[in-house]
Simulated assay, not measured.
Amino acid sequence: MPLPPPDPFLRLRARGADTNAAGRFEPYARAAENDGWDIPEDERLVRTEVSEEHPRSVINRVTSPDVGFDRSINPYRGCEHGCIYCYARPSHGFLGLSAGLDFETKIVARPTVPETLVRELARKSYAVAPIALGTNTDPYQPIEQRYRIMRRILEVLSDWNHPLTIVTRGALIERDIDILGDMAGRNLAQVGISVTTLDAGLARRLEPRAPTPERRLAMIRALAGAGVPVRVMVAPLIPALTESELERILAAAKDAGASAASWILLRLPHEVAELFRDWLKRNEPGRAKHVMNKLREMRGGKDYDSNWGRRMRGEGQHAELIAHRFAVAVKRLGLARDLPPLDCSAFGPPPRAGDQLSLF
């Protein structure tokens, strides 16, 4: 279904999408129409709205064989970074909201996650394994500065000696280097920093409220300097748009202190495909057709192939070429494919006042 035209009375500033199509579960769609009266004072700047949710459980079980974890936590729904290609955009449909502007302007914070997490960790049936944070929406998006949910989650996991991994492009992670450095010293923490492009102008259009590429390299430098193992994630790799930068991104991240690397091909599930095609027409009209043709070449002729084993890498000659280039580059740079396993052996409840100390 084609996207509706932009609302003529909305004024956008640093947003990835410019429309707000109804979610795929909604029975009706709405489109704004100009009635011919040009009244400037009716224009309104689209601002970020935050609501709160108090979930009864926070550890999500993951069964996908394509990822290296079996559980995750998401402190927020939606993401103000506004990355136009974000595969998590369709998740707003479960809230009756749009994957377009709603996803990046109507954020749901979950402030009671740390307290709920404590209860789940304390269950006798709980079996420890690394918890992944930031696998859906970025846990260090701008509103984290006010809510500090991630800070409190890290405090809980540190107290319980629970291993964790984080994926982010948010500079706020540097605020928590004291906790992450301490946990990394106990082999309990690893971080992945996503770098899509080194071109600041392109990044500004693709990821309008995310830190600049140079700022993300500085994050890698700061984390690695604190002893935190860092993986650079060339994600998503966009054919005919950012794929030529693959080796340069890996080299820049290695120089900044990254010790491992990975890449993921652009994924366009559900509403994201139309949003991304619209973005290409607005921002890269000369390359739009070429980008989509190359992507479809690696997706079996479709915008997206969700099958396990193919959704992260694609298939075909061009996908194999990218994988070969990546393999050659990481070998030359001395980057690992995988970081060492985290320690699960020290997991346990933190000591409480009045507990008897062990004699051994």
Results as ranks from 00 to 15, higher is better:
residue 299 R to H: 09
residue 100 G to M: 06
residue 320 E to S: 10
residue 88 A to F: 05
residue 183 M to R: 12
residue 126 Y to G: 01
residue 176 D to V: 10
residue 66 D to F: 09
residue 282 R to V: 02
residue 50 V to E: 06
residue 43 E to V: 08
residue 201 G to V: 01
residue 300 G to R: 06
residue 164 L to E: 03
residue 157 L to R: 08
residue 323 A to K: 02
residue 77 R to N: 04
residue 122 A to L: 07
residue 327 A to R: 03
residue 156 V to D: 00
residue 50 V to G: 04
residue 335 L to F: 06
residue 319 A to S: 15
residue 94 F to P: 11
residue 48 T to G: 00
residue 130 P to S: 04
residue 169 R to K: 14
residue 78 G to C: 04
residue 208 P to V: 05
residue 74 N to W: 03
residue 353 A to R: 15
residue 160 W to L: 03
residue 317 Q to Y: 00
residue 68 G to E: 08
residue 229 P to H: 13
residue 215 R to G: 09
residue 89 R to V: 09
residue 161 N to W: 00
residue 28 Y to W: 08
residue 345 S to K: 12
residue 288 A to K: 04
residue 260 A to H: 06
residue 67 V to H: 05
residue 74 N to F: 05
residue 299 R to L: 08
residue 131 I to R: 09
residue 281 K to Y: 14
residue 14 A to E: 12
residue 189 A to Y: 05
residue 68 G to H: 14
residue 343 D to Q: 00
residue 2 P to V: 12
residue 69 F to K: 09
residue 300 G to V: 03
residue 146 R to T: 13
residue 1 M to Q: 12
residue 107 I to D: 04
residue 350 P to Y: 01
residue 39 I to K: 02
residue 253 A to L: 01
residue 94 F to S: 12
residue 240 A to R: 14
residue 332 R to V: 08
residue 78 G to A: 02
residue 125 S to T: 06
residue 313 R to K: 05
residue 64 S to I: 05
residue 126 Y to I: 01
residue 170 G to I: 00
residue 86 C to H: 05
residue 89 R to Q: 07
residue 199 D to A: 11
residue 336 A to N: 01
residue 123 R to F: 02
residue 358 S to I: 03
residue 83 C to F: 07
residue 31 A to M: 13
residue 181 G to R: 01
residue 232 V to T: 13
residue 69 F to H: 09
residue 316 G to D: 04
residue 323 A to T: 10
residue 296 R to H: 11
residue 49 E to H: 11
residue 97 L to D: 01
residue 152 R to V: 02
residue 143 I to L: 12
residue 115 E to Y: 02
residue 15 R to E: 08
residue 250 L to C: 02
residue 158 S to M: 03
residue 325 R to A: 15
residue 175 R to K: 07
residue 270 H to D: 07
residue 22 A to Q: 13
residue 168 T to Y: 10
residue 10 L to H: 13
residue 128 V to H: 00
residue 52 E to I: 00
residue 59 I to R: 08
residue 205 R to N: 10
residue 74 N to R: 03
residue 177 I to Q: 00
residue 54 H to D: 15
residue 32 A to Q: 13
residue 168 T to V: 06
residue 179 I to F: 01
residue 211 P to M: 08
residue 357 L to P: 09
residue 180 L to P: 06
residue 350 P to E: 03
residue 356 Q to R: 15
residue 348 G to Q: 05
residue 338 D to Y: 02
residue 89 R to K: 06
residue 95 L to A: 14
residue 184 A to E: 01
residue 340 P to G: 13
residue 129 A to G: 05
residue 126 Y to C: 05
residue 172 L to I: 06
residue 323 A to H: 07
residue 194 S to D: 00
residue 119 R to C: 10
residue 105 T to E: 14
residue 267 R to D: 15
residue 5 P to M: 07
residue 64 S to C: 09
residue 257 G to A: 09
residue 249 I to P: 02
